[in-house]
Computed example of a mutant assay.
Amino acid sequence: MAEPFAEVIGDPIAHSKSPLIHRFWLERLGLEGDYRKTHVLADRLGTFLAERRADPDWRGCNVTIPHKLGVMPLLDAIDPLAQKIGAVNTIVPGADGLTGYNSDAPGFLEPLRPRLAERHLLRTARIFGAGGAARAIAHALWDEGFTLILIARDLAKAEALAAEFAAGHVHAAPLARFAEPLDFDWGDTEGRLDLVVNATSLGMTGQPPLALDFGHVPPGAIVYDAVYAPLETGLLAEARRRGHPTIDGLAMLIGQARRAFALFFGRPAPADPESDAALRALLTQ
């Protein structure tokens, strides 16, 4: 007898750690089911979803690069948050067809929740990237009261994303500017929450590093890298060396997976410290 299953789709997909996460949680909870990874090319998205619609055991899929925008016209409904972000990373079948969600936004915020519960005089985020992950992060932080600086190799893409927000609190800048040395007196940063977020593929295995002069990074800023392969990117290593608090890509990966797991299998993922430690150990073997 076939078992229920979910999966992650993308191009490429071999690097994905999502099956390890979801299978760990399924085993931990004693649930029947599986989670797989499936290589899907852009011109096969329509065919793939048509086939899955007809499979009664399919519980849905996560969507990774480069399909987070491409799947949207193929769905029957889109959750309001995903609609606002303009990107879908989770698809779930239901009585009314396929619905698209975005779990990147809540997943990104999960490790920041203790700091976000504090009061701040000013919240500022420098976000590198203008793709699907950067869009989710920008909207998530905007809703948390951050002034945004959107930074991309293609300035036009950063400006287009910035135009979606209220003028005055969102700025766009070219990536090359942040590689240049900056000698700036940041003054008193007491009462501020500053973030520097890498939402690009720079620093990923096989990719060049993110060229960032740390003169652009406010004292005490949290440096958050969405890249998780390698887990210790050059950006995080340098940030730690300089005494900045850091958050690695596994935090966002696990956070977004929690939301998706509940949608796929109808149960919340384990969130106790012991399970979290065992999962992180599994993912870093």
Rank of each mutant, 00 (worst) to 15 (best):
E3I: 15
E7A: 14
I9R: 11
G10D: 03
G10K: 07
H15T: 00
H15V: 01
P19E: 12
I21D: 04
R23G: 00
L26Y: 03
L26D: 07
E27Y: 02
R28E: 15
L29W: 06
Y35T: 04
R36V: 08
R36E: 11
T38E: 15
H39E: 13
L41R: 12
L45I: 02
G46H: 10
E51G: 15
R52T: 12
R53K: 12
A54G: 04
D55K: 07
D55H: 10
W58M: 12
W58Y: 10
G60K: 06
G60N: 09
G60Q: 12
C61M: 09
V63K: 06
P66D: 03
K68V: 12
L75V: 11
L75E: 11
A82P: 01
Q83Y: 05
Q83P: 01
A87H: 06
V88C: 13
I91S: 12
I91Y: 04
P93W: 09
G94Q: 06
S103I: 02
D104L: 03
A105Y: 09
P106D: 09
G107D: 12
L109E: 09
E110C: 00
R113A: 14
L116Q: 06
R123L: 10
R123T: 10
R126G: 00
R126L: 14
G129I: 04
A130L: 01
G132R: 07
R135Q: 07
A138W: 05
A140R: 03
L141R: 02
W142C: 05
W142S: 14
E144V: 01
E144K: 12
T147L: 08
L148V: 07
I149C: 09
I149P: 00
L150C: 01
A160M: 13
A162L: 08
A162M: 05
F165I: 09
F165N: 02
A166F: 00
H169V: 04
A172C: 11
R177S: 04
A179Q: 13
E180Q: 15
D183C: 01
W186E: 00
G187W: 05
E190S: 15
N198W: 03
N198Y: 09
N198P: 08
L202H: 02
G203K: 07
G206Y: 04
G206Q: 11
P208S: 10
P208W: 05
P209R: 01
G215N: 13
V217K: 08
P218W: 10
P218K: 10
P219G: 02
G220A: 09
Y224I: 14
D225P: 04
A226N: 08
A226S: 15
L231G: 02
E232A: 15
L235P: 03
A237E: 11
R241P: 05
T246W: 09
L250R: 06
L250N: 06
R259V: 15
A260L: 12
A262R: 14
L263Y: 06
F265G: 02
G266P: 11
R267D: 08
A271G: 00
A271N: 08
P273K: 09
E274G: 01
D276A: 15
D276M: 14
A278I: 07
L279M: 10
L283K: 07
T284M: 06
T284F: 00
Q285N: 05
